[in-house]
């Protein structure tokens, strides 16, 4: 005659075993830095902080392209990021030993670039200098295929125009005299 309690006693042992596996498993599997700052894996913060940047800042270009930087920093385009019109610095100056080609936009592409900010579009604030491409070029009496940099210096867009204006007014002033 077998002990009638045997089954439930054995099953209880199984149950305790399951709990032990879960408890031990949890202890073993808990990531090391868990709870360093709170109830999460603390190291993930440093992992995120260490992720490499792709874009630098305009300071990144200064060292090697001082002329352009200087020109731009006193112009209407001073707030613009060099990298947005060109490419991220990480694709250009990879440390001290590799220069990839830095795209400079010419022709149609350049017109598209300038118009992406300056084309008159519903939604743009009124105070922002906008042009209607066709009208702008017509007003200057040039063909629609004229690129913007034929009149504006890209990095300081009013530089030479103001220059010309200054000269003209100087001439006019001289003529009047």
């Amino acid at each position: 005659m077998e002990n009638p309690n045997r089954f439930w006693i054995r099953l209880t042992v199984v149950f305790v075993g399951i709990i032990a596996v879960v408890v031990l498993g949890r202890m073993a599997m808990l990531p090391e830095s868990w709870g360093k700052y709170g109830y999460y894996r603390g190291d993930s913060i440093e992992e995120e902080a260490q992720r490499a940047m792709k874009y630098g800042t305009n300071e990144s270009c200064k060292g090697c392209h001082s002329e352009v930087s200087e020109l731009k920093s006193h112009s209407a385009h001073q707030r613009l990021s060099c990298e947005m019109c060109h490419a991220p610095v990480s694709e250009h100056a990879k440390g001290s030993n590799k220069f990839a080609v830095m795209p400079t936009k010419k022709g149609k592409e350049q017109i598209g670039l300038c118009l992406s900010c300056h084309q008159k579009t519903i939604g743009r604030p009124e105070k922002f200098p906008m042009i209607d491409h066709a009208r702008h070029l017509a007003a200057q009496k040039v063909k629609p295929s004229h690129t913007c940099d034929q009149c504006h210096t890209v990095h300081a867009p009013l530089e030479n125009i103001n220059h010309v204006k200054d000269q003209r007014s100087l001439k006019e002033a001289l003529n009047e005299n």
Binding site: A49, Y55, G56, R79, S81, F128
Partner: peptide, 23 residues
């Protein structure tokens, strides 16, 4: 979006702030 935590911790502005032409 992380507000570019990896940039902020390196003393840089988030990429979108850096890219914004009008501030």
């Amino acid at each position: 979006c992380t507000w570019c935590y990896h940039r902020v911790r390196k003393g840089k502005l988030p990429a979108c702030v850096n890219a914004c032409p009008t501030g």
